[in-house]
């Protein structure tokens, strides 16, 4: 099939950037979206132009690196998939496709479609862990049984790949789904219990400091999340944060 691509090009963080139009031809329905981008880039290199920079790595939907805003939606039109798992059979011959980077003040553009998501790392560093030493001198793994329902819920929250689609699709560029997934995972497990208060407070504060917007419960994040993380996690984090704020001593 033949397509018209309208892609955001930006040389560097300081550059203004603009949408540019590129035609591509010979696209097959079995190709992934990123393979379609490979075809375009090969063409650009051949013509002596600079290829479009985009983030990608595993190409099997788990590393969270790929991040394209396709036709007005994070990771494109299909639900529950990352850009790399979006296949061209979701498009028709002659389609025009807009491709933009994640837009958020907390995710500055590095080049073209590549953004800096280190804000997510800093949020995890502020408390997204259990403070257990890696000495191996821990208790036996089966010493603390965990209710299956909670274990499963913790797992569902933990499947977050940190891609940032939630931020990209939220009208307020809020990171609540990402942060709440980690807060929930650890709040649901006995291992995370001792630090639950400080974790909720610190991670939320870091999130605010990074410049993400507030949650207004539009629910867009959960719809666009490639791992379909539930809004229930946001409610749980709201609860955790409220409890921690009320009961903290200093």
């Amino acid at each position: 099939m033949k397509l018209t691509l309208k892609i955001w090009r930006q040389k560097g963080p300081e550059d203004k950037g603009a949408i540019q139009t590129y035609p591509v031809d010979g696209i097959d329905g079995d190709m992934s979206f990123l393979e379609m981008m490979d075809v375009l880039n090969e063409q650009l290199i051949e013509k002596g132009e600079e290829p479009v920079a985009f983030d990608h790595d595993c190409r099997e939907g788990i590393c969270g690196m790929c991040s394209m805003y396709i036709n007005g939606r994070a990771h494109g039109p299909k639900r529950g998939v990352t850009t790399c798992q979006l296949h061209m059979r979701s498009f028709k011959d002659g389609d025009t496709i807009y491709i933009e980077p994640w837009r958020s003040t907390a995710f500055p553009v590095i080049k073209d479609l590549v953004v800096d998501r280190s804000a997510f790392d800093r949020i995890i560093q502020s408390g997204g862990f259990v403070s257990v030493n890696t000495s191996g001198n821990t208790i036996d793994a089966n010493a603390t049984p965990i209710e299956k329902e909670n274990a499963d819920k913790a797992f569902d929250a933990a499947t977050c790949i940190g891609c940032g689609a939630c931020v990209a699709s939220c009208k307020n560029a809020s990171a609540m789904l990402f942060v709440s997934a980690k807060v929930s995972q650890l709040a649901l497990l006995p291992q995370g219990d001792p630090e639950r208060k400080s974790r909720a407070l610190n991670m939320v504060n870091q999130m605010d400091e990074e410049g993400f917007g507030n949650c207004t419960n539009t629910g867009a994040c959960a719809v666009e999340c490639p791992k379909e993380i539930s809004l229930e996690n946001i409610a749980r984090m709201n609860r955790e944060f409220l409890k921690a704020s009320i009961s903290k001593e200093s």
Partner: peptide
């Protein structure tokens, strides 16, 4: 005001109707 500041550069093409009801936005 804070939420608007969280996204200074807007999308050229955005389709929020696909993921949320307009009253919420």
């Amino acid at each position: 005001v804070k939420n608007n500041a969280a996204r200074k550069e807007k999308y050229a093409y955005n389709k929020p109707s696909a993921n949320s009801v307009w009253t919420s936005r």
